[in-house]
């Protein structure tokens, strides 16, 4: 099946400034794709480029199955929706007037039914007649989300959709994203909330002008961090070298504190039983043995920090 988004060596420059460079990835239909990166990394510019708002400098892409060329811009925009970071609502108009305007622009059939459905999806049925200017930031964000649903897009670009939302509203948006993806809508999610990306996304890309990493969150963790076992004993081991060296699958170990050890292992399912047996044989009082899990945040910070402060010897 053709991917919903297929990007190949896409770049965008503004004069001498590189917004993003040589970006390639594919997003399958119904997939939630997380697009992460620090401020100024080129995330919004990438979304705008794929949304035909700005033209790429080089490279190619298929958006909702259509080649990204100026002649196809209208057809692409018909099949996608972009919810920008700032809701961009007409504050003097009511919620329903805002949605009516966009329903007309998308020429959706039965606009009132679509509007009712979109409002229901973001739980704003009761606020349809309110002026947007009178709504809180979070409610405006939800109106913008309703607006993005009007044309029932194949690909939905969400730029920080939960920014400014309270926890309950955030949970609602997460549920909506999951439901949309289950119904076959491809979600391109730009976010700074790493736990959000970890929870929602099938695949994550980390951009810092160039694409730094791409893959499922779990794969990124294993790519960037060695698997480690965290071992805690009641008292420090008198001779840890003798206990840990030579055990199957244990590659290295280091002391993290009093009675706390971190073991680099190639396969935790082999290493953990062997380590347990070795500790018992050494008469150690074992408090815990467990695999250390790195979060997506660890992956992100490792990459971004490396970009900001490259290790010595790296050009």
């Amino acid at each position: 099946m053709q991917p919903a988004l297929s990007v190949h060596a896409l770049s965008k420059r503004f004069g001498d400034r590189v917004a993003f460079n040589d970006v390639s990835f594919e997003v399958g239909r119904g997939e939630v794709f997380g697009f992460l990166g620090p401020n100024g990394a080129g995330k919004t510019t990438t979304v705008r480029t794929l949304g035909t708002l700005i033209a790429p400098t080089s490279g190619s892409a298929l958006v909702a199955g259509i080649p990204l060329i100026p002649e196809n811009a209208v057809e692409i925009r018909r099949r996608i929706s972009i919810m920008p970071e700032s809701p961009g609502l007409y504050l003097r108009l009511s919620v329903i007037e805002n949605l009516e305007c966009f329903a007309d622009l998308y020429e959706v059939p039965e606009p009132h039914k679509r509007i009712a459905r979109a409002l229901h999806a973001v739980k704003l049925d009761e606020r349809a007649r309110d002026l947007c200017g009178a709504l809180s930031k979070g409610l405006r964000q939800r109106v913008a989300l309703a607006r993005a649903l009007l044309n029932e897009p194949q690909v939905l670009f969400l730029d920080e959709p939960t920014s400014g939302l309270d926890p309950a509203a955030t949970r609602d948006v997460h549920e909506l994203i999951t439901a949309l993806s289950h119904s076959g809508v491809t979600i391109f999610l730009t976010t700074h909330r790493l736990e959000e990306a970890e929870r929602l996304c099938d695949t994550v890309a980390i951009l810092n002008t160039t694409l730094r990493m791409l893959g499922p969150p779990a794969q990124l963790r294993t790519q960037l961090f060695a698997t480690t076992l965290a071992v805690r004993t009641r008292l420090p081991l008198p001779d840890p070298d003798r206990v840990f060296n030579g055990l199957p699958s244990v590659e290295a170990w280091r002391r993290d504190g009093m009675g706390s050890y971190s073991l680099t292992v190639s396969d935790p399912t082999i290493a953990a039983p062997a380590v347990t047996r070795a500790l018992v044989a050494a008469d150690a009082d074992v408090l815990s043995i467990g695999e250390s899990l790195h979060s997506l945040e660890d992956v992100y910070l490792e990459l971004v920090d490396n970009d900001a402060n490259p290790p010595l010897g790296r050009s």
């Binding site: 949304g51 708002l53 925009r77 961009g88 007409y90 622009l105 998308y106």
Partner: peptide
């Protein structure tokens, strides 16, 4: 100025 141009241009409007 009011931030509504981007959502507007993101629709199929020519």
């Amino acid at each position: 100025d009011q931030g509504t141009l981007e959502p507007l241009l993101a629709t199929p409007i020519r």
